[in-house]
Structure formats: C-alpha cells, structure tokens
C-alpha cells in the first residue's frame, strides 16, 4: 500500500483525468482527448477504464468489476485485485452494494441508482471509424453534426442481412447531439443507457479519449423508420435461474449439440437463485452451497 499512491496514479494525473471527465459530463457524448498513461496491463484489457476508475475512486468506495457480465473472469479478477492492492478499497460482487462499477461489455441487469458510477472500458471510441478512417474528417463530422454516414452502416446491414445485424457497439445519439459508441455492450443494454440515474463514464486508453453520459440523459439508438431499433436477446429463459428478461450467454455443454443458456450477469443470476428461482437445469441454491 505504501509503495503506491492511492489508486496507482499520481495526483497530477488524476487531476488531468478528472478535468477530462468534467468536460465530458458537460458535453454529453463528446470525446474528450486526455493524456492516457501507460498502465501495468496491456491495451485492450481496460487501460482506459482503469484510469477513469482510479481518478474517481475514494477510500470509502466499494468497487465492483464486471467482465462480459461476470465477476469471476480474468479481466474482472485482475482489475479488482489491482485496486485492492493499490487503493485498498472494499470490493463486492453485488451490484446494489457497489458505489463504483467498472464494466467491460455489459450493463448490470439490476437498475443503477444515483449513488453509483458506471465506468466502461472502450476499445475504439469513434463510432464512425470503420466507415471514415481519417481522424481529421471524423472530428469535423462530429463538429458539424454530419451523421448521415452512420446510417450508411445500418443501411449496409439491412441490404446484406435483411435486418440491422449490428448486435453490439450499436451507435446511439446522446441528448440529440453527439453520436456515440456505447462500447461493445450488446444492443440489449442500449435502452439502459438512457435516463439512467447513475453517472456513466467511458474510457479508451489506447485511443486516449474519455466521454460521458450524465445521469438522466436522453440516449437514442439510431435506426430507420421502417426498421426500428430492437433490443434483442436469445429467445430462451436462463437455465439456472429461469429469468426471462436478462441477457443470456450460450454455453455449449457437449460435442453433440447440447447447449444451455445462462444469465450473462452472474450477480443477477446468483441473487435470483438465492431467492429461490430455479431454471430448467438448475438445482436449489442452498444444496449447491452445502456441497
């Protein structure tokens, strides 16, 4: 603990990041450049999210880290450990108990509150990047609100697949102004971005950008009048907890085509099972705990 400044980054760096965050909050959806630091983890592992988290953490915070909905996968475990060691903050896996949640590619199923901050890890913050490779040009497009090109991507989807096949990183428009990449969350989570009581911050370490969706901000998923946006999920119930309204992961269980669908949000699934819900393949929660 004494070897590191609180939350790893030095105070000047945190100050610089907080300034970027404040600017991002003031201009919802606008990508604020910041001087991203080297972090002791590779790019793509959440270096941007970690820096935003470090700048927001206080010693009283309780941290939860999600990786694809799960609390127990590599990325989540290593980042949680990182802040346990460098900040000494309390951690939790329960969404309701956490004050700061760093997430990779999911928004928790349980609705967030005003007292929570959600930090997203973002690989490529520029939603127009794959259509327009020039940074000077995409900046100009944001500046002049020229977003027709974003619909070209959706047009291409429909032309090729018959429907909007973009399933994650689905582009949104924030507060009627900036088009934003919501990080690679499934489009199932897109409606949760809008009018959320929690502060949502996005950090991209390699691309050196921070942007934000302040609480109660209107976020609209882009679509066509005759092909409206649809928050899709696998048409099943969770096989462990029986939930019909949560985002599901498909798990292949043998090489003869058997599969099961389980909640991608592990905390949501566990708390439902603890409350007595049982899915198609589930066992009562108490017996498993006893084993």
């Amino acid at each position: 603990m004494t070897d590191y400044n609180f939350a790893y980054l030095d105070e000047q760096t945190k100050r610089m990041i907080r300034r970027a965050i404040l600017k991002g909050v003031a201009v919802p959806g606008y990508q604020v450049p910041f001087a991203s630091r080297e972090m002791p983890m590779p790019y793509g592992w959440g270096t941007g999210g970690v820096q935003v988290t470090a700048a927001c953490l206080t010693p009283e915070d309780r941290l939860k880290v999600i990786d694809q909905g799960a609390d127990d996968t590599t990325n989540a475990v290593s980042i949680r450990k990182f802040f346990q060691r460098t900040a000494g903050v309390a951690t939790t896996e329960a969404t309701a108990e956490a004050t700061l949640i760093q997430t990779r590619h999911r928004i928790p199923e349980q609705p967030l509150t005003q007292d929570q901050i959600l930090v997203y890890q973002v690989p490529i913050p520029e939603p127009l990047r794959f259509l327009e490779p020039r940074e000077t040009e995409t900046r100009k497009m944001h500046e002049l609100e020229e977003y027709g090109l974003m619909h070209v991507k959706l047009y291409e989807d429909i032309a090729r697949h018959g429907h909007i096949a973009t399933a994650y990183a689905y582009p949104v428009k924030v507060e009627g102004r900036y088009v934003m990449d919501p990080s690679p969350i499934p489009k199932f989570d897109n409606p949760k971005l809008s009018d959320s009581p929690a502060l949502q911050l996005f950090g991209a370490g390699r691309e050196q950008r921070i942007y934000a969706v302040p609480p109660y901000t209107h976020v609209v998923s882009l679509d066509f009048e005759d092909h409206p946006f649809e928050a899709s999920k696998a048409p099943h119930d969770c096989d462990l907890c029986g939930a019909s309204d949560s985002y599901l992961d498909e798990v292949i269980t043998d090489d003869r085509g058997s599969r099961m669908y389980v909640c991608s949000d592990t905390d949501h699934c566990r708390s439902r099972r603890a409350a007595g819900f049982i899915g198609r393949l589930g066992t009562p929660f108490a017996t498993e705990a006893a084993e």
């Binding site: 027709g148 090109l149 619909h151 070209v152 291409e156 429909i158 066509f224 009048e225 005759d226 092909h227």
Partner: peptide, 27 residues
Amino acid sequence: LRMGVTAGGNVGERLMAVGARHYGDIR
C-alpha cells in the same frame, strides 16, 4: 465513392446525409 460500401449504400449516403431515414424509400 466509398469502395467498401455497396452501390446502393453509395447512392443512399447522400440521401441519408440530408436526412432520409426510411430504408425502403432510400432503397
């Protein structure tokens, strides 16, 4: 032209740039 975008998308881009948001009409 945008070489990575289909012919229909290339023609439609200008329509979408001036605000067309109905796929069937653009097509």
